[in-house]
Computed example of a mutant assay.
Amino acid sequence: MSSRVEDIRRGPRHVAIIMDGNGRWATMRGRPRLFGHHAGAKRVREIVEACPDLGVEYLTIFGFSTENWKRTQIEVAGLMSLFRRYIQKEARALRAHDVRVRFIGDRPGLDPKLQALMDELEELTAQCHGTNLTIALNYGGRDEVARATRRLAEDVAAGRLCPGDVDVETLPKYLDTRVLPDPDLVIRTSGEARISNFLLWQSAYAEYEFIDTLWPDFSEEVFARLIASYAGRDRRYGGVRA
């Protein structure tokens, strides 16, 4: 068996990416930050299309966090416009490549027109069976756990759930990602070494890669190298090999 085939077989089923560095990439070129975000959006297509050949069934990308509202009004408005344009432009291509799209995050906090486009894209790709692409918009790990806990508490109060039955298997059923497997590998680009409130519960046993590459420069070759690196790791989940 070739080393590439072996890497795919042992590689991560679910990869999550914190796509960082768009603004710095643009600034280094004397361009406005939104120029970098547009370049980063184009990079998403290449990485999504690379997933099948690399054995990645699930890809989750961090598009906009609950903390990103603190950015300038111009940048936030530009990002929201970019999300709308991305969905409208990429919808048919995503379905053509058999990509199923889901969104996670606090959806009611987004513009109603953007919410409608998100709903339409999820419906359009609902019957796709290739790569599962999850886009986190207005997402924060703590916010997600708080919303999940609120729904769980409502079920306990209504008598639909007994307090004694609540365990570590219960809460995930209330998370935004309840239909997804936990990520095996989390990648953060741009040289920052923090997780930024991303998939806090789900990534308890994920492997992490913090790389210097800025997101607009993140290529299929870099992605494949990280997949191969993961394949060489010894995953014990707290245990010890006999």
Rank of each mutant, 00 (worst) to 15 (best):
F103S: 04
G40L: 03
E192N: 06
S203D: 11
G23K: 00
I135E: 08
Y174H: 10
G109E: 07
E123R: 15
S203C: 14
T60D: 05
P216I: 02
L137V: 08
G30F: 04
G191P: 08
D98T: 03
L199T: 06
L54S: 09
D119L: 09
L133N: 02
G11Q: 02
L214M: 11
E169Q: 13
R9S: 05
T131R: 02
D182T: 09
R142C: 10
G164A: 06
A231L: 13
L199N: 02
Q115M: 06
C128Y: 00
R225H: 15
R188V: 06
R151E: 07
M1W: 08
A228G: 13
M19E: 05
R13E: 02
L54R: 01
R10G: 09
D7P: 07
L226G: 00
G141T: 13
R84D: 11
R194V: 07
W215G: 01
A157Y: 06
R29M: 10
C128S: 08
E122C: 14
G232I: 09
E220L: 01
V166R: 09
L137F: 06
N138V: 03
M19V: 08
L121E: 15
E90F: 09
V186L: 10
E75Q: 15
R236C: 13
M118Y: 04
T27L: 11
D167A: 08
D98F: 10
H129W: 09
L133P: 04
A204N: 05
P32Q: 07
S81L: 13
P163I: 13
L161M: 07
G36D: 05
R241K: 14
D155V: 04
A153K: 10
R160E: 01
V168A: 15
I187V: 08
R225G: 13
R85W: 10
A153Y: 12
S219A: 03
E154W: 10
E207M: 11
W25F: 01
G232T: 06
R10D: 12
D234M: 11
L200M: 12
A93S: 14
